[in-house]
Design a binder for these strands. Sequence first.
DNA 1: TATGAATGAGTTTTCATTCAT
DNA 2: AATGAATGAAAACTCATTCAT
Lengths: 212, 212, 212, 212
Amino acid sequence: MSTTETTTARARSADTRKKQIVTEFRRSEILLAATKVFGAKGFDGTRMDDIAAEAGMAKATVYVYFRSKDEIYEEAVEQALAELVELTEQHVKAAQDFAGRVNAFIKVRLSYWKEKQALYRVISTVNRETLSRKRSLKWQKVVVDYLAAMFAEAAVQGEIEPQPSFEAAAWAVMDMIRGINDRRIVHYERPSEEEGRFMTEFILKALGYRRP
Amino acid sequence: MSTTETTTARARSADTRKKQIVTEFRRSEILLAATKVFGAKGFDGTRMDDIAAEAGMAKATVYVYFRSKDEIYEEAVEQALAELVELTEQHVKAAQDFAGRVNAFIKVRLSYWKEKQALYRVISTVNRETLSRKRSLKWQKVVVDYLAAMFAEAAVQGEIEPQPSFEAAAWAVMDMIRGINDRRIVHYERPSEEEGRFMTEFILKALGYRRP
Amino acid sequence: MSTTETTTARARSADTRKKQIVTEFRRSEILLAATKVFGAKGFDGTRMDDIAAEAGMAKATVYVYFRSKDEIYEEAVEQALAELVELTEQHVKAAQDFAGRVNAFIKVRLSYWKEKQALYRVISTVNRETLSRKRSLKWQKVVVDYLAAMFAEAAVQGEIEPQPSFEAAAWAVMDMIRGINDRRIVHYERPSEEEGRFMTEFILKALGYRRP
Amino acid sequence: MSTTETTTARARSADTRKKQIVTEFRRSEILLAATKVFGAKGFDGTRMDDIAAEAGMAKATVYVYFRSKDEIYEEAVEQALAELVELTEQHVKAAQDFAGRVNAFIKVRLSYWKEKQALYRVISTVNRETLSRKRSLKWQKVVVDYLAAMFAEAAVQGEIEPQPSFEAAAWAVMDMIRGINDRRIVHYERPSEEEGRFMTEFILKALGYRRP
DNA sequence: TATGAATGAGTTTTCATTCAT
DNA sequence: AATGAATGAAAACTCATTCAT
């Protein structure tokens, strides 16, 4: 008896897990579709019909997995930003010295969005509401702190000169990256390789970096 | 007879001119009102009713002077950007040396927004559509070229080191300024005085500026 | 000068009044149409499109005069009830003795709804929500109090026997009237003349009325 | 062979019966749940999800036992009305004389609702549609006829005076009861004991009842 | 010219019901 | 039989824009 029960319980548990996975998959599908459409048409320009069509399901189905258009939007943005933070840390950790770390940081953040222009468009439209802006800044803040810490460490190691504000320097870097990414969207770009290299040099110089 | 006719023509001409002036005045009123509302609520959040109310006239009247909501928006942005370009040039010209010019440039663009947040919000929402983005970039391009030329001149004068790309450097400056202004909107700000000073130093250092 | 101003002011005032009248007229039109449709289809069965079509205008126009479907409903009901209260009092006042007053009361309330069955349907659908029910009861309460007072007065005059509760008796009358009206809607009716006469007798007897 | 077949057939028959019982049980569960929800939220306010949840099964399962929301509603009402008719007859039969029967009738119908407000709410919402109204009236008619017959019998026995219309008198009684119950829902109530006693007296008097 | 009034064309969201397993 | 998932068909409300005076 107990065996049967256990088996049943196990089966049920497996079912539950499978269901969760399917649900998660569906959500991803929708998020992916939404990202494309949001990227192409902006938040207000996007219709729920568009998202559903892109995801290949009925509009009502979308509402099975998400409560509202806003929720989809928020999650799409959140997901992308979290992913980028993760990715950035990975690449930076792999670099050897300070110059390499700065370069890695810049490169990741230029190439990530290059591949996901649609998503970037979404996020840069985050301007939509101050609320969303704040949420977006929250994520930026995480990265800025990370970068500032990197600078501080380098200053301690004597790799760069001491700075009046590591945070301000970090923001400067972030802003330049954003600028390049923005221009890319409007096709005002220059070869990104070159762009990244120039930026790295520019930053290193400003920080008083001494090549070992 | 001919005298009478001429007189009449003159009178008519005067009438026409007066009409034009009135028209221009009305357009300004609307643009001013629109700027406030757009600044506070964003493009999509703004209703034609809001603009009309703010301008103290009926909604239909707005349509006498502008073809559409978009047209109002475009003109409001255009106006703001033109004003800023003008202002920037004035201040920069008044400075003595390169460091002063860079500092003036930064200061103007930081303080302008500080005073006219509504306008800034409008402009930063320009991102709304790629079309508008391009238009916005056109104006930025004017300023970037101006700044790049300033850098080139300084390089020729030996005030700063030669650069691989004056334009890239100029964009870097623009991006930092934009970043600071953006953060200001969301109240993530630090004292702007300090911010401006830090930035000037950061830039000068990156450009290899040698204090005379 | 002052004359001109006065004239202008007067004209403006006249304009305002005219506007109010037009607005009031439009609202009436809509209310009338809504009453028909609500009566035929019930609250939930009625579409805003139906109301607009019945009123011969675009759906959006309805929203110029009313904030929501609920508002239209509430006002339609309110209007009808108020009108009936007014009418009832008029007829009752015109009667000579107690029997006449009771008869008048019953007759008015049977014939009013007979003519406005659509409206009655609306009101009896008031059951829809407890909130609306309460509102409806409020109006009934006014009438019940009126009727109870009438009974009390008659008791004092010795026209009828003293009662344990004038209010309860009044409600009894109201309930019977409601029943008859309800049945009428479903065509379960008997000749209303007879119905009214029977009811009057029934009530008078129950109250111990003594024909003078 | 034929034996086997018979056995099988019997088994099948037993199976079929068991199945029917289970089905009937399931339907009852659903009806019970539906009654609660309909009572609390009204017809339109009730979602199939609510009913399913209350019944502790999946929404789709409900559709295994009922064709539609309407069907559930109709049956819930039907069930409640039938139950009440049954109950009424029982209590009335137990009474000794006419006054007792009238009193029993009123008491049952007042106390039934008091205990099953949810059910009452459902029934009083029957007004929703003329169709339903008619169905509801059908049930009321059964009760009215019953009551009218009771009156006729009493008239024959000389317990009450002859009436111009026994049916009209019966409706009067029904309407008063309904009124009291309605008011109870909206908490406009007075002590029901008193209410019932008053009503009985009122009716008896109107009918010219002579206490033996 | 100025404007009150009118409206066409959406848009998100809801929900009873059906499908597939 | 039981159900999770999917969906078609609405429905209320909004708003930029046009019309008529």
